[in-house]
């Protein structure tokens, strides 16, 4: 058996399940945010910052950001292993992706709890 060391869950089945669980969370978050924006056509700063100031929205957003991190890594890992055959280029690309995901996560936490 070939053991992967760069994929997310170290097993294809684990990645498969995580990709679907994170997809459902991201889908719910997307529907909520799009629905909220559609229902508030004249949104102002107080309402918007009030939404993201509430504890449940911060937790929901953090859950979505963490799901995004897992979902993006599993998806981009699949894409990079499929199309980037030279090991050095693939590993370099995956390193950039990991770094970008880390930056997005820190940025997300900063936005939610920073100010």
């Amino acid at each position: 058996m070939v053991t992967n060391i760069t994929n997310f869950g170290r097993s294809g089945l684990s990645d498969w399940l995580l990709q679907r669980a994170s997809a459902v969370i991201l889908a719910l978050y997307t529907l909520f945010v799009v629905g909220y924006l559609l229902l508030h056509p004249n949104l102002d700063y107080a309402t918007w910052s009030g939404l993201f100031g509430s504890t449940w929205m911060r937790i929901f957003s953090l859950l979505a950001f963490v799901s995004m991190a897992a979902h993006a890594w599993i998806g981009l890992w699949t894409v990079t292993t499929d199309y980037l055959k030279p090991t050095a280029i693939r590993i370099a690309a995956q390193a950039v992706i990991i770094l970008a995901i880390f930056v997005f996560l820190v940025w997300g936490v900063q936005v939610l709890w920073g100010a």
Binding site: W48, V79, F104, V111
Partner: peptide, 19 residues
């Protein structure tokens, strides 16, 4: 999927700045 990942820069910028 790749486009959305790159688009996160725009999305996080918009969220950060708007808040």
């Amino acid at each position: 999927g790749v486009i959305l990942f790159i688009g996160l820069i725009f999305a996080f910028w918009a969220l950060d700045t708007s808040l």
